[in-house]
């Protein structure tokens, strides 16, 4: 079971706050996690990554285990603590402003 935390805007959009849990087929990659997330909540299609190219949107970041995974290959396996459910996978709206 993968534990996912969405930013407030997207939690509002799906009408569910707090941590989500997803079942993701192995090997558990960023791509598979996002596929599962979008399958469970279709309204998220296009909000985290491009609908067609699946490129991460420019101001979206992925954090887990105190690491920034945003620039990892979408097909690289996620950290073991995330796969075990010990750590959360954070979808984050990049900090911006002044």
């Amino acid at each position: 079971m993968i534990r996912v935390v969405l930013p407030a805007h997207l939690s509002l959009l799906i009408g569910r706050h707090g941590e989500l849990t997803l079942i993701v087929d192995e090997p558990v990659t960023q791509r598979r996690l996002l596929d599962s997330l979008e399958e469970a909540y279709p309204v998220l299609r296009g909000t985290i990554r491009d609908r067609v190219t699946h490129q991460r949107r420019p101001f979206i970041r992925f954090f887990a285990c105190e690491e920034d995974l945003s620039h990892d290959s979408p097909d690289s396996v996620l950290p073991e603590p995330v796969i075990r459910g010990d750590e959360q996978f954070f979808v984050v709206g990049a900090m911006a402003g002044g």
Binding site: P7, H9, L10, L13, V43, G46, T47, I48, R57, F59, I60, G93, A94, A96
Partner: peptide, 8 residues
């Protein structure tokens, strides 16, 4: 819409 999350 949102610059971060796109269009709904």
């Amino acid at each position: 819409s949102s610059g971060w999350f796109g269009q709904i």
